[in-house]
Nucleic acid binder design. Structure first.
Lengths: 181, 181
DNA sequence: CCTGGTAGGTTCGTTCACTGAACCTTGACT
DNA sequence: AGTCAAGGTTCAGTGAACGAACCTACCAGG
């Protein structure tokens, strides 16, 4: 958000958090990372953000320790962006935002639902499993598509996200798909 | 965020929520509303946002039904901005952000803690009361200042927020205080 | 009647960030 | 040598945020 001076003297944890993840696109990048997106180009086609902005956001998320940039291939050199422990702790924020967007805003069909991978039960609003009575970490959550999703999206990342998927599992696009940008 | 086209075709509840509350200052306005701030000038001195931006944010929050603008005095005409039911449902978002800002970001002293007003117990991360085993609505939460707060802030709103306060209770500033802007 | 003060804004010029398009680099493949 | 893909950077144009000044309505004191 490039705020610095104004938010800095707010003496407030909420303001501090917003300094880090409050800029445009930032939380959507983190959301995609939970959905398994790891590569620059996949973020790009899924978000539709300008390349320069995406590069800046990825860099700043790495700088604050939310994402880790790591080499996954040497020739040609390719990096991927993976959520750190600190980034994974942002899940309750995304969860709360998504819940509010779905329930408090009018005329929204449910886009995705989140289930405990061990038992299939849909998670309670607080993020725990009603059946097991346990707090469910993001790695044990399965995302399932809902009625509000576009059934035939244009970009390959959205198409891959139409299938039920466990959070944080890297998204692997079929080679034929990655060509359609 | 004036995004419209880009976020709009994201088919995602998180993106929809961010369209509404994702702009700079917006969530801090909502936070202040939870703390009892209701008047334009109080938001202004506490946030330090430009007047034009604050006016635009308040108006857009009224437009989307998060705040209600209502006349509380006729002569001279004075309006106050109060959280609606829809706005109050944003509490889990602020809670999650504040928790992350405090626990995941380094070097932060706790600024405020939140307690169940019925028993005084500090709330669990999910927002429930560990002693009573109940989900606690914002109206039953008491905010208490923590070690990270500036003990002698410049503006009267920050000074008023140094005392333990129940959420959503309107902030009444002593007349002598409101003069020091 | 004149001045001053307060609440709640609007207007305006400057600065800064976002946008979209084009371009660049590295390495693999043919 | 030419082409392709990934992952960027650069750049001009636009829109939003910023800070200061100004405006309006009302009341109080001298």
């Amino acid at each position: 958000m490039a705020l610095g001076k104004d938010y800095a003297n707010q003496h407030c944890s909420i303001a501090r958090a917003l300094e880090v993840v409050g800029e445009r696109w930032t939380l959507l990048v983190v959301r995609d990372a939970f959905y398994g997106v790891r590569r620059y180009n996949d973020f790009l086609v899924h978000l539709g953000a300008p390349r320069a902005v995406l590069a800046a956001r990825l860099q700043s998320l790495v700088d604050v320790g939310v994402l880790d940039k790591r080499r996954y291939q040497e020739a040609p050199p390719r990096d991927e962006y993976v959520l750190t422990e600190r980034g994974i702790r942002l899940w309750p924020v995304l969860r709360a935002l998504g819940l509010w967007g779905r329930e408090a805003l009018p005329g929204t069909l449910p886009m995705r639902s989140f289930h405990h991978v061990a038992c299939g039960t849909e998670l309670a609003p607080a993020g725990d499993c009603p059946a097991c009575g346990l707090a469910v970490p993001p790695a044990d959550i399965e995302m399932r598509p809902g009625a509000g999703l576009d059934p035939d999206p244009a970009d390959p990342v959205s198409r891959a996200l139409l299938k039920p998927r466990r959070l944080l599992v890297p998204l692997e696009l079929p080679p034929s798909e990655s060509r359609r940008v």
